[in-house]
Amino acid sequence: MDNQKARMLGENLAHYKRAQENGSVNLIEFHTTDGQKFGIGNAAAIQLLLSAAVTELERQLHTARFGDIPERLEKSREYKTAKELEQALNDMGFNPKRFAETLPYFHKTLEQTFFRVMKACITGMAKREPNHIDGRNRAAYEMCRMLAPMLEEIRLPFI
């Protein structure tokens, strides 16, 4: 972990989040390599740019603290599938209950596999170090810590 880089990124992230939350930014200025300056004063565009900056700083901070994703994972089918799921979940219209309603329509063998994936996700999160858990995920982490001992005892047969 690069402590100095993580501290700097954390400070920048906090600054951008405050700016995003309180709406205090009224102009974002870009300086080109040829010395020209361009500004954006549209409030909606500023919010969008700040949102993108916050998301990117969160990613950089996570990488500074915990490292990059291992190459063996990044090239795997599972990672690519997880990234597709990430995109679907990022849509504000994604409805977890409606998603759960679709499961009975899976092929029954794939439904088994899906629940193996959910079990692995729960037990995997439960094994994380507490200092690697973001405040947004604290409740889910605590729930996984409670469920994991039971799930580890239950075998899901492949039929």
Rank of each mutant, 00 (worst) to 15 (best):
I69R: 14
A53Q: 15
A52C: 06
D91A: 06
R7W: 11
T102V: 06
N137W: 14
Q4N: 09
R128G: 03
N3Q: 13
V25Q: 02
G124N: 02
R59A: 08
Q36Y: 09
E86W: 08
F106E: 12
G10A: 03
T33W: 11
I28D: 02
G41H: 03
E101R: 02
R136Q: 15
E101H: 00
E142M: 03
A139N: 07
N22Y: 10
A148Y: 02
G135K: 11
F30Y: 05
G10Q: 05
E152M: 01
Q4K: 11
E11Q: 10
M8S: 09
A6Q: 04
A52W: 03
K119N: 05
H107Y: 14
D134K: 04
E78D: 15
I154C: 02
A88P: 00
G10C: 02
E78A: 13
L27K: 12
N22M: 11
I69D: 10
L61F: 07
H107P: 11
H15N: 15
T33E: 12
N12G: 13
A88F: 04
K108W: 14
K108F: 13
E74L: 14
A45P: 07
I40W: 05
K83P: 08
Q4Y: 09
E111M: 14
Q20K: 15
L49T: 04
G23V: 09
T81H: 12
R138F: 10
R72S: 07
N42W: 06
L156V: 03
L85H: 13
K37N: 08
T33Y: 13
L85K: 09
I46Q: 04
